[in-house]
Nucleic acid binder design. Structure first.
Lengths: 349, 349
DNA sequence: ATTAGCACTCAATTCTACCGAGTGCCAACC
DNA sequence: GGTTGGCACTCGGTAGAATTGAGTGCTAAT
């Protein structure tokens, strides 16, 4: 009697096989037609072996439980966010077409240049693979150690602090002084900064000299400026590829405008991605990410891990009716290649 | 007889006063209604003191001469590119509203940070002022002299070259070697590079050592990598603000997509701006700039000049029916403030 | 429990009529 | 001669009315 959970399911977290199949059929069809899906097209679809009437009654149930919605009486059904959620949770993982696999392989085989350039180009690649807008976030250098610090004098009161990190990134900050700094003072400060900071990360606090002479002040200023990296983004490494896809993929000027204007605020994009990573989400659908202007969007993220440490993430932004299987596959493959690319580089040492 | 050019004007380069007034009325009205303009609304407009019938016959002439076009019989007239061109060529220069003047002033009074950050924020400002998409191009460091060069070892075969320029910009390039470089060799190469390059610009060629030892090879490699800056863009300083405005300002998804996809190709944007500066154009309308996907766009550029030398440019991109007077004023004011901002900074030295 | 049958709903499409903004032309007027 | 009022004509846009058809919900039969 207790073996079957027959009677006890007010709103079961899981659907019986037939409902699941029907839901899947609706989602699949709606994804590639963008139209409400009717009972008969579901009934005639491959894995469903019942009549439209039966499908209809199941659909009523699915609607009652919140997986489907009806734009208006006498239209077909459309998946709700919850419906999409069920769909992606039960998605079998997909693979790229061989042509796409080649494209990715060729790309990573031939890509050259600075980290930033690679990430930038990767965002374009990912966008081309999926025809959605792609986001690539570099982790920033908060975990990297400092290899070199240098103070360069632009003019007497205006120094430029340049720090090189072990991940190959470079930070640059102006340091303004209230006194005229002589070139000897600057180079002495530079020397002390090196002694002080090499080998540390931005997260470690260091002992700064408390004296009040020019050199000590310069050193103190420099350290504080360097450590004052913007808290959230911390690395300015956000690359957005294929923002023009937004105009292809969403309908309604208003939606396009909203989404574009979100994408303009890189800080926002980074925190969205970060939030999702923190929650261990790989897909956020509609309202799930909590950003109101992105209600009609789905976001996919895949972390990039180099040597066990988080090194960034790649993401995709499309409509809720995006091609999840393909998009997830693309994001996954690209993130792995990216990880290998950067991992491989360091192994060469 | 020769005094009046009465008979000799097959297609006069200049329009008589009444035609000019009528053309101006049509352009002005069409710019703020986005509708074809009929003879009667022109006739009733302020500066025109003739009947609709007269206006009509003048319009026929203006159409014959290519200043106006008719979407279809029995619609009003719409300016052609040539019509807009005449309009902007005879435009009295405008000023910003006091609110806008304040906004600009406040912005430049409070803006802080690295050049890149300032330019980035300026692009946002300009876009907000005009509700068009703004472009800010930094000149790049081809004219700046090198203040410091440093080679930092990431691993034995992988060095990072960091150069600081007199304009406060920093260039960073990987240098890969086919041999394992020892830290002594790297620092010696670094020393030599400094001796060789400090005070030069990227445009000056320098004598590199021709020896075949590791240090000399490293130095040669570094110099060539540094001088191999991408030819056109040369400075990676392109900032685009308010790309979401594209969706507001153009109608037709297809147009929006085209324009966005142009904006994604920063190289293309830079060369467009550069072309216009070279030709001394400040406004390019429709086909004038020769970029087919931007046929329905008008582009405004204003150079930024610091100490007599070109230091970049600001630009605006909108529909051909953009508010030229306001946009020109905004671009002008912002470019001047920008020039003063950077000029002012250096004077402090 | 499933399904065929059927009445019903309602968005989308088509068709029609019509309106009116705007034109081009002409004859009258100054 | 240039200007203007008058007038017939064009043609896109809009508003209804009629029609279509995809899709539903319900019910009774299997």
């Amino acid at each position: 009697m207790a073996r079957r959970e027959a009677k006890t399911k007010p709103t079961a977290r899981t659907l019986d096989a037939r409902k699941a199949t029907i839901l899947e059929a609706v989602v699949t069809e709606h994804i590639d037609t963008a139209q409400p899906v009717g009972s008969s097209s579901v009934a005639h679809s491959a894995d469903v072996a019942v009549s439209p009437a039966t499908v209809r009654s199941e659909m009523v149930a699915l609607e009652r439980e919140g997986y489907l919605a009806q734009p208006h009486t006498s239209a077909g059904r459309v998946p709700t966010d919850k419906g999409y959620r069920y769909f992606v949770d039960h998605l079998t993982s997909g693979v790229l077409s061989t042509a796409q696999q080649h494209q990715v392989k060729d790309f990573f085989a031939s890509v050259r240049g600075e980290v930033e350039d690679v990430l930038e180009q990767t965002s374009t690649l990912l966008s081309q693979l999926t025809s959605y807008t792609a986001v690539v976030v570099g982790a920033g250098h908060s975990h990297a150690t400092i290899l070199s610090v240098q103070l360069v004098s632009l003019d007497a009161r205006h120094q430029l602090l340049v720090a090189v990190f072990s991940d190959g990134s470079v930070a640059k900050h102006s340091v303004l002084t209230s006194f005229d700094a002589g070139s000897l003072e600057v180079s002495e400060a530079s020397r002390q900064l090196n002694a002080l900071l090499i080998g540390t990360t931005l997260e470690q606090r260091v002992q700064v000299p408390s004296r009040h002479d020019n050199v000590a002040t310069l050193v103190r200023e420099s350290v504080s400026v360097l450590h004052a990296e913007r808290p959230v983004t911390d690395g300015e490494h956000v690359f957005i590829g294929g923002s023009s896809k937004v105009a292809e993929v969403f309908d309604g000027v208003e939606t396009v405008r909203k989404v574009l204007s979100i994408l303009e605020q890189e800080l926002l994009v980074v925190s969205l991605v970060q939030d999702m990573l923190d929650q261990g989400l790989s897909v956020a659908i509609g309202s799930e990410h909590g950003y109101e202007p992105l209600l009609s969007c789905a976001v996919i993220v895949a972390p990039v891990t180099v040597d066990g440490a988080p090194a960034g993430a790649v993401g995709l932004l499309g409509p809720t009716r995006m091609k999840y299987r393909e998009a997830l596959a693309a994001a996954g493959v690209v993130s792995q290649h990216l990880a290998r690319h950067f991992g491989g580089e360091e192994e060469r040492g």
